[in-house]
Structure formats: C-alpha cells, structure tokens
Computed example of a mutant assay.
Amino acid sequence: MRQINKGAEPGELTQWKAQNRALPNYCYTSLAAAHRLAVRTALVTEQRGLCAYTGRRIDVENCHIEHLRPQAHCGIGEDVDYRNLVAGVPAPNTPQLPYGAHKKADWPAVADEHLFVSPLSGGCAARFSFRLNGEVEAADSADNAAVETIARLGLNDEALVQLRKAAIAATLQIRGRGPASIGIADARRRLRDLERAEQQAGALEPYSFVLVQALERQIRRIEKIREARG
C-alpha cells in the first residue's frame, strides 16, 4: 500500500456541495456522471495512476470511486467528503474481484476503523512487507491492523500475488541470466529511479512500492554475500 497525499477536491464537487448541501438528497448517489468523472480524474491524478489498495494501474475509465469509510456507515455528507474518497479497481458494473474494494465491501464498521490501515495514514507503506514471491505480510506480526487489513482487502489473493510476483521478477531479472540476477549497481540505479519518480509528477509504475522493497532486499542480499566472501 502506498501513502496517498490528498489534494484539493475538484471544483465541480465543491460547486455541487454548495448547491445541494441543504437538500434532502445530499449524498453520493445524487452526484451526476459529470461530477463523478471529475472526482475520478482528480483521484487518479493524486494517486499517480495506482489503485489505492492494490497498486494496480488505473485510469479514469477502468476504476471506480471507493469510500474509505463505507457508504453503509457514513453520516450525512460523509459519502461526498473528498477525503473519504479514493480510486480503485475495477470499473463500475464489471465482474467482482476477490481482492481490493470488492473484497473490502462494507468493512470496516465505525467501531472497527482502528483495524483498518488507510492509504491516507502516514507511514502506511512501511507496515506491509512484500516477499519476492509476491505475498504480503504485516511488517510487524503484532500489528493487528495490518494483519486484518491484508485479510479484509484480500491482498494475498492468488491472482493479485501473481501480478506482484511478475512485476518483481521482471525488475530483478536480467534477460538471459535467470531470476534475481540484477547486479548491485543496476539494482541501486533502478531503486534511485523509483525513488526519484516519487518526487516528480506523473504516473508511477504499477506496484512501485513493492518494487522498492524488492530492490532493497536484493541489495542487502548481495551485500551480505560480499561480506561473507570477505
């Protein structure tokens, strides 16, 4: 999970709120298609083209607007609060996925929000540890919220694990030289490129936060081998 830094809500949503705040239908379902498009566009931009929960590539056509606090548990106005909105796979009216927003469904209830690691929370990325086989676990086994979030979002669903594994393998492998064959100089260069991209504008690579961890692991592995050889 990559930390999302929320920006200002789109002007179309601000204008809609000003016009509808006093009306009985002041809720997300009353937003017109144009308002939702403006919101999705803003979300995809601030999320750097990555799904809020999975890290998959998204654009305005293949994602939907997800509520961090589920609509079922929102009070008046909370379901149109821009800070409660993120973008995630898949697009509306498409087959259910066994992970991400579909898996999360109406979790968490307000009483369980302490068990949800939100992508808006500071340091959220460091609470998850990705293995080279694509699986994810809590960085601290005592972090009950991270453990619960992984389960509730289905982050170890086999299909999603395989997507991450493929991205990791492509990053660590030098063509024709087998798995995890990238050298330390190339690994450091690739890591710097990913870190530099975080500081710049524009879309990020899918699973970029996973690839950073994979490269750091590879660098540490090579350093240990060198140390052992003296």
Score class of each variant (00 low, 15 high):
residue 51 C to K: 11
residue 51 C to E: 14
residue 54 T to M: 00
residue 55 G to C: 08
residue 58 I to V: 13
residue 58 I to Y: 12
residue 60 V to A: 14
residue 60 V to E: 15
residue 62 N to H: 11
residue 65 I to L: 06
residue 65 I to P: 01
residue 66 E to P: 09
residue 67 H to Y: 09
residue 67 H to R: 11
residue 68 L to G: 07
residue 68 L to T: 09
residue 68 L to I: 15
residue 69 R to W: 07
residue 73 H to T: 13
residue 75 G to P: 09
residue 76 I to D: 14
residue 79 D to T: 08
residue 80 V to M: 06
residue 84 N to W: 02
residue 85 L to N: 03
residue 85 L to F: 06
residue 86 V to G: 02
residue 87 A to P: 00
residue 88 G to S: 15
residue 89 V to K: 03
residue 90 P to D: 08
residue 91 A to E: 02
residue 91 A to R: 00
residue 92 P to H: 06
residue 92 P to F: 07
residue 92 P to I: 05
residue 94 T to K: 02
residue 95 P to V: 02
residue 95 P to R: 04
residue 95 P to W: 02
residue 95 P to S: 04
residue 95 P to K: 04
residue 96 Q to H: 13
residue 98 P to E: 09
residue 98 P to Y: 07
residue 98 P to V: 07
residue 100 G to T: 00
residue 100 G to A: 02
residue 101 A to N: 09
residue 102 H to S: 11
residue 102 H to F: 08
residue 103 K to Y: 08
residue 103 K to V: 06
residue 103 K to F: 08
residue 104 K to Y: 01
residue 104 K to H: 03
residue 105 A to K: 08
residue 106 D to K: 10
residue 106 D to C: 05
residue 108 P to M: 01
residue 110 V to L: 12
residue 111 A to T: 14
residue 112 D to S: 15
residue 114 H to V: 07
residue 115 L to F: 06
residue 116 F to P: 01
residue 116 F to G: 00
residue 117 V to S: 06
residue 117 V to L: 12
residue 117 V to P: 07
residue 117 V to W: 02
residue 120 L to C: 06
residue 123 G to D: 02
residue 125 A to C: 11
residue 126 A to L: 10
residue 127 R to A: 03
residue 128 F to R: 00
residue 128 F to H: 04
residue 128 F to S: 04
residue 130 F to R: 05
residue 131 R to H: 13
residue 133 N to Q: 04
residue 135 E to W: 00
residue 136 V to N: 01
residue 136 V to Q: 01
residue 137 E to L: 09
residue 139 A to E: 10
residue 139 A to L: 08
residue 140 D to G: 08
residue 140 D to H: 11
residue 140 D to S: 12
residue 140 D to P: 10
residue 143 D to C: 13
residue 143 D to V: 12
residue 143 D to F: 10
residue 146 A to W: 05
residue 146 A to G: 11
residue 147 V to M: 10
residue 147 V to G: 05
residue 148 E to P: 00
residue 148 E to M: 02
residue 151 A to W: 10
residue 157 D to S: 06
residue 158 E to Q: 14
residue 159 A to N: 13
residue 160 L to E: 05
residue 160 L to S: 05
residue 161 V to A: 08
residue 164 R to N: 07
residue 165 K to Q: 12
residue 166 A to N: 14
residue 166 A to M: 11
residue 167 A to W: 02
residue 169 A to F: 09
residue 169 A to K: 14
residue 170 A to V: 09
residue 170 A to K: 15
residue 170 A to H: 14
residue 171 T to E: 15
residue 171 T to A: 15
residue 174 I to F: 09
residue 176 G to D: 12
residue 177 R to M: 15
residue 178 G to D: 13
residue 179 P to V: 13
residue 179 P to M: 11
residue 182 I to H: 08
residue 183 G to D: 15
